[in-house]
Design a protein around this nucleic acid. Structure first.
Length: 568
RNA sequence: GCCCCUGUGGUGAAAUGGAUAUCACAACGGUCUUCGGAACCGUUAUUGCAGGUUCGAGUCCUGCCGGGGGCACCA
């Protein structure tokens, strides 16, 4: 039982001893540490029922609590404050024990909220023949972090990527490629050159589709041929381009540190989607309309959507139906199936969820969609004028270059510099995405998103590297110490597990990001004001504190999908 | 037109219905520059507007205003 649970239990008992009505006990950490480590507001809620003033009631409960737990070593004092809060101040001996627990327990911070549960996580989902854009970076960062937080909470997580490798967008690209056969890069050319060519062709095809009716007709033909695999020539171009894209994406995942367990391609699930949709026309879920098969969402207060178009091909909608049913066939005993996409798809996913529920109640209720905010450009005009589109990959490269410049003069091998540049760049980008709630939009400001100061990933990594540097200078961290002076960092470190629990319950990694910034600030403050090495009788406890901080920071960064370099 | 999301210092964000609204950036001023300066300390708010619920509202409800997104054969 951790300290929070201990206190809650004692409060519940005190309330019962005083014959007060049952009340849910919630503990929180006051914003100001001067108001205690934990605070409880039961007296405020119970006052009316008990017919007492909140403050008097708080005093009564507080007296009872002092009898019960006032003498245990964890609690230094209990105070009533403000309108009727009961505040708990933890003792230095508790802080010392909590630091020892962090050092000794490799599983510190983990919880069992998802123990024995299986969770499918689908995220990133790039499109073949198109660039890996910043939206994919967002989906990847959020999905990877939630995956890790779930694992940390006991879940069996299956990471799934659903790349789009069929559909009109591919036909557009293929159409343009056929117009410029002579310009096709060779297989030996650098991969980003090859995929860059594909991306350019996609843009050309898209423009032609809108402005040129002949081209539109041709592209529709190609689309048909792609579904039917009816033209060897088109198939050859398609297969080559598809593979280039997928290889390229794989490189990016590797750099980001995501390892998918399973790829399910869009081209695999269309047939299944059509079958399912057709099977449910008779049951009244889908309807035929103007030659297409639709889901009449308006009946349910949702959008009406086309699932099979009038040419007989599955739209995105039918493919998603196929995909999500397929997932549950492939993996047994799934408790949650989570999909991360941009929030422009929110309403569409409401339709999908309703459809899935009508097809199979279990699949519908266990499938959850989280739409993340969009990334927009602070200087959108400039990027369109110069034609420079910032892709996910170019962003990674640009940031890596900046880090490299920053560490150019350090005494590190080129290999180390390369490694650090990559880790810090990924840290900067992932953190800038994960520092805020996932629904919020991010206004993309280049200088800010790669800022290495203050509220940033590199600041966290730097704090870790500083601690690591000290620890390199000492031998084993000793555990025979007492904490004799109060310090803020110790009052934060034991809370790590609570923060993770909240993050997993809400599927919100930014709680961890916020927490890490707090402990990094506390550590840097501690570091700036207290010598650690050669600090006399304080040395052992300060080294232990440094080591505990480093452990928590490293775990926390891992949960965000960010590596903690020993040097930078 | 209908529906969904959103509005917090100059800027970007945080805050399980709780106390004096927290953090970072920018600005200004300072520390230190002997454990790694990507550091540390200090100074800057009518939570869009108006009602309501509550002992208590940035948070919940209603209306209005502003921003973003979606609404039949794209993904």
């Amino acid at each position: 039982m951790n300290i929070g649970e201990k206190l809650s239990k004692a409060i519940t008992e005190a309330i019962s001893d005083l014959k007060l009505p049952d009340s849910a006990v919630s503990l929180e950490h006051p914003t100001e540490i001067s108001m205690g480590d934990y605070s409880c507001n039961v007296a405020l809620g119970l006052a009316k029922k008990a017919g007492m003033k909140p403050k008097e009631l708080a005093e009564r409960i507080s007296e009872k609590l002092t009898e019960k737990i006032g003498q245990i070593p964890e609690v230094e004092k209990i105070e009533v404050a403000g309108p009727g809060f009961i505040n708990f101040y933890l003792s230095l001996s508790f802080l010392g024990e909590s630091i020892k627990a962090i050092l000794a327990d490799e599983k510190f911070g983990e919880n069992k909220i998802y123990e024995g549960k299986k969770v499918l996580m689908e995220y990133t989902d790039p499109n073949a023949f198109k660039v890996f854009h910043i939206g994919h970076l967002m989906s990847n960062s959020i999905g990877e972090s939630i995956s890790r937080v779930l694992q940390f909470s006991g879940a069996d997580v299956v990471r799934i990527c659903y790349p789009s490798d069929i559909g009109l967008h591919i036909a557009k690209a293929v159409w343009a490629i056929r117009k410029k056969i002579s310009e096709i890069p060779k297989d030996e050319d650098p991969i980003d050159e090859r995929t860059g060519f594909l991306g350019k062709c996609y843009v050309e095809g898209t423009n032609a589709y809108e402005s040129d009716s002949t081209a539109k007709k041709e592209i529709d033909e190609i689309n048909k041929s792609l579904f039917e695999k009816s033209d060897d020539n088109i198939q050859a171009i398609y297969k080559k381009g598809r593979q280039w894209s997928l290889d390229h994406f794989e490189q990016i995942y590797k750099k980001l540190g995501t390892k998918f367990d399973r790829y399910i391609y869009e081209s695999e699930v269309g047939k299944k989607g059509i079958e399912i949709v057709n099977n449910f026309i008779d049951k009244g879920i889908f309807e035929k309309s103007n030659g297409a098969v639709i889901f009449p969402g308006e009946k349910y207060g949702l959008h009406t959507r086309v699932f099979i178009n009038s040419a007989g091909f599955p739209t995105y909608e039918a493919k998603e139906v196929g995909l999500n049913v397929y997932k549950f066939e492939q993996y047994k005993g799934v408790d949650e199936s989570i999909i991360i996409t941009g929030n422009e798809q929110n309403e569409y996913f409401q339709v999908l969820q309703r459809v899935l529920g009508l097809i199979d109640e279990k699949i519908g209720s266990r499938t959850k969609h989280f739409g993340h905010g969009m990334l927009r450009f602070a200087d959108g005009k400039m990027s369109s004028r110069t034609g420079k589109v910032i892709t996910g990959e170019s962003l990674l490269k640009d940031v890596e270059k900046l880090v490299w410049e920053k560490i150019a003069n350090r005494e590190l091998s080129n290999e180390e510099k390369q490694d650090i540049s990559q880790k810090v760049a990924v840290g900067a980008i992932r953190y800038s995405i994960l520092r805020q709630a996932k629904t919020g939009n991010i206004v993309y400001d280049f200088s800010k998103s790669i800022s290495f100061e203050g509220d940033s990933g590199p600041y966290l990594q730097y704090s870790y590297a500083r601690a690591a540097s000290i620890l390199r200078k000492v031998g084993a961290v000793k555990s025979d110490f007492e904490i004799k002076n109060d310090n803020f960092i110790a009052r934060l470190l034991y809370r790590f597990g609570e923060v993770v629990s909240r993050a997993v319950t809400e599927h919100e990694p930014h709680h961890i990001a916020t927490y890490l910034i707090n402990i990094a600030g506390a550590f840097n403050n501690f570091y700036a004001n207290n010598p650690i090495l050669d600090s006399g009788e304080e040395e052992t406890s300060r080294i232990a504190l440094t080591s505990a901080f480093a452990k928590v920071m490293k775990k926390g960064l891992w949960l965000l999908g960010i590596e903690a370099p020993e040097k930078m």
